[in-house]
């Protein structure tokens, strides 16, 4: 079975600005794929190319085995999109917009619509201009999630939602996932992608710089280890793959903190064998750290 989304060598420029620079991305059927990067990295541009709203300058993109630029009418029957910045008509109510989008799609599941309205706590009788950003986003989410789409393209879908609604969003996405839906979730909120995604791709300056499961990506980075020992073993500082070793007195013994490469954990554990370990915590790297690793040069100017 071919992937749901297959992008190869995609490029897109706006004037002199290179928004996408030979981008590659593959999204498999049935997964939630986190598409991560800060603002301006090219996430929205990629989604717009996948929707046929923008025409790529070079490279290929296939969505559900169709050409996103040419096969708009047939392809869009099978997918739904939630824009990052949802704009509504000032004079149309939220309920009217949900129905309009549903009818353009070829029909709304009324039971699902009612259920989603209740769970997202959305008043469908308000006019578009009266909604807050979060509520506008809910309108688009209800419309997309009530559809029969097999692919959901979500552009920072929770950026206006409160934590309670974020949780509802996660539950609803999980339910749709159980029904076989594929999701491409663009986000700069890492905890969200971490909670939902099977795989993530990190985009930077219009290119995907890292792609894989969270486990795979974690292997690329270091685990933080804190050990309480009675006696500090010698030679810790020189161990291959063990970095930033610090020792400070702790109770009757000492506390050692260090950063360890994922494949060097065994070396560390071996070295600690005779040290009288009476406390050990190890924290796997969060996506946050993964992310910072790739963007640290943007932040500090040096990697």
């Amino acid at each position: 079975m071919s992937p749901v989304i297959e992008i190869h060598d995609l490029s897109k420029s706006f004037g002199t600005v290179r928004a996408l620079d030979h981008l590659d991305l593959t999204v498999e059927r049935g997964e939630v794929h986190g598409f991560l990067g800060p603002n301006g990295a090219g996430k929205t541009t990629t989604l717009r190319v996948l929707l046929g709203l923008l025409r790529a300058d070079g490279g290929t993109a296939r969505v559900l085995d169709a050409d996103p630029w040419r096969d708009v009418a047939t392809l869009h029957r099978r997918l739904a999109y939630v824009p990052g910045d949802v704009a509504l008509w000032p004079n149309l109510t939220g309920g009217e917009v949900i129905d309009l989008l549903g009818r353009l799609h070829g029909g709304t599941d009324l039971t699902r619509r009612a259920d989603l309205l209740e769970r997202f706590d959305l008043d469908p009788t308000k006019k578009g201009r009266a909604y807050s950003k979060g509520n506008r986003q809910k309108v688009a989410l209800v419309a997309a999630l009530a559809s029969d789409a097999e692919l959901l393209l979500l552009d920072e879908p929770t950026s206006g939602l409160d934590p309670l609604m974020e949780e509802v969003f996660r539950q609803v996405v999980a339910e749709r996932l159980a029904q076989g839906v594929t999701v491409l979730l663009s986000s700069h909120i890492l905890s969200e992608a971490e909670a939902l995604s099977h795989r993530v791709s990190i985009i930077r300056h219009g290119r995907v710089v890292e792609s894989g499961t969270l486990d795979e990506l974690r292997h690329l980075t270091r685990t933080a280890v804190t050990v309480d020992v009675r006696a500090v073993p010698t030679g810790l500082t020189g161990l291959p793959g063990v970095h930033d070793v610090r020792v400070e007195p702790h109770g009757t013994g000492s506390r050692v903190t260090c950063e360890v490469d994922s494949d060097a954990l065994t070396t560390l554990v071996d070295a600690l064998a005779g040290a009288g370990v009476h406390g050990l915590t190890s924290a796997p790297p969060t996506l946050e750290e993964l992310f910072l690793r790739h963007y640290s040069d943007d932040l500090a100017g040096v990697r």
């Binding site: 008509w89 004079n91 149309l92 109510t93 309920g95 009217e96 917009v97 949900i98 129905d99 309009l100 009818r103 353009l104 008043d123 469908p124 009788t125 308000k126 006019k127 201009r129 009266a130």
Partner: peptide, 22 residues
């Protein structure tokens, strides 16, 4: 702003319906 309809009227089903409404 007064509350409006919770569901769209039958006429608001496609591009023409929307453009007429607008």
């Amino acid at each position: 702003d007064r509350p409006g309809a919770a569901t769209a009227p039958r006429s608001l089903a496609g591009p023409v319906g929307l453009v007429v409404r607008l």
